[in-house]
Simulated scan of single mutants.
Amino acid sequence: MTTHVRQFLCLKDNYGVLVHDSDTGATAAIDAPDGEAVIAAAAAEGWTLTDALITHHHADHVQGLPALRARYPKLKVAAPAKEAARIGGVDRPLSEGDYARVGRLAAKVVETPGHTAGHIVYWFEEEEIAFVGDTLFALGCGRVFEAPPAVMWESLLKLAALPGSTQIYCGHEYTEANARFALTIEADNSVLKARAGEVATLRAAGRPTLPTTIAAELATNPFLRAEEPSVQAAIGMTGADPAAAFAEIRARKDRF
């Protein structure tokens, strides 16, 4: 069994992603930010879309679905059960512990509320890949819109517990701006400083900064490091509840 992942920018800074199982020919779009861009990417690879795996209900992740349904009448749409009514036309409502299948590939569903109340992540454990939507970004995390910050922190802890080698595909190319903010929290983190330089080089060359890995995020992402003494000291919250420290970091990023 061979798994192929095709990632491409669309809209302004959204990432479209295709996952292809070469054994069966099944292909899934992870979210649908721009239907025509997804269709073009699939056509360029010679793939036929069979599935769409939706992470959350925001328009820039679902607005391409009508175009995909029109082009691929047999398309099956999987989405968070808690947001299915807001998305519409969902064939497979999914909850924590369920599996989404793309041919012979299986993705375990992890509920990660915070950015939206029903946000889910697709974790292809065997392939060591996770598609995390807008919950986790390279060097950042999503804005907290539909749940308290403590809920988002618990969602991030779920992702932090994945194997360090897990490749993380996020919904947006925000890494360069996230790096600038991260350095305001941990200016002396040598690993972060090196990574920020690498990110700047990639973006100057027009190259993506994704995927990242859980290990890289644990070493450099301030939102996953809210319980680290160095991070808490930097924000004047030594010994604080990590959820409270996370809330402070998120508030600072919102003002950044």
Rank of each mutant, 00 (worst) to 15 (best):
T2G: 00
T3G: 06
H4D: 14
H4M: 10
V5P: 10
V5H: 09
F8G: 07
G16Y: 10
H20I: 13
A29N: 09
A32L: 04
E36C: 00
A37G: 08
A37F: 11
V38F: 05
I39H: 04
A40S: 14
A42P: 05
A44G: 12
W47L: 04
T48Y: 00
T48I: 08
L49A: 01
T50Y: 03
A52N: 01
T55P: 07
H56S: 09
H57E: 10
A59M: 06
G64S: 07
L65E: 06
P66D: 09
A67Q: 15
R69V: 13
R71Y: 05
R71K: 15
Y72H: 14
Y72R: 03
A79K: 08
P80I: 07
P80A: 12
A81E: 15
A84T: 10
A84L: 02
R86A: 15
R86P: 00
I87R: 04
I87K: 01
I87T: 07
G88L: 05
G89M: 08
P93A: 10
L94Q: 12
R101L: 08
A106Y: 02
A107D: 01
K108D: 11
V109Q: 08
T112M: 03
P113S: 05
G114W: 03
H115K: 02
T116A: 06
A117L: 08
G118N: 05
H119M: 13
Y122G: 07
E126V: 11
E128H: 15
I129E: 14
V132W: 06
T135F: 00
F137W: 11
G140D: 10
F145V: 00
A150N: 01
E154A: 13
S155Q: 07
L159C: 11
A160S: 15
A160V: 07
G164L: 09
G164F: 13
S165H: 13
T166Y: 13
G171Y: 03
E173Q: 12
Y174W: 11
A177V: 12
F181P: 07
A182R: 10
A182L: 11
L183T: 10
T184I: 08
T184P: 03
I185F: 09
I185N: 13
E186M: 15
D188P: 05
L192S: 12
A194M: 04
A196P: 10
L202Y: 03
G206L: 12
R207V: 01
R207H: 07
R207N: 02
T209H: 00
L210R: 02
P211V: 09
T212Q: 03
E217Q: 14
E217G: 08
L218E: 11
T220N: 07
N221R: 11
P222M: 04
F223H: 13
F223R: 04
R225E: 10
R225A: 12
R225C: 09
A226D: 11
A233G: 11
A234Q: 03
M237I: 06
A240C: 04
P242A: 12
A243L: 00
A244W: 00
F246K: 03
F246L: 06
A247D: 02
A247F: 04
A247E: 06
E248T: 11
E248D: 09
R250M: 11
R250S: 14
K253P: 00
D254A: 15
R255D: 13
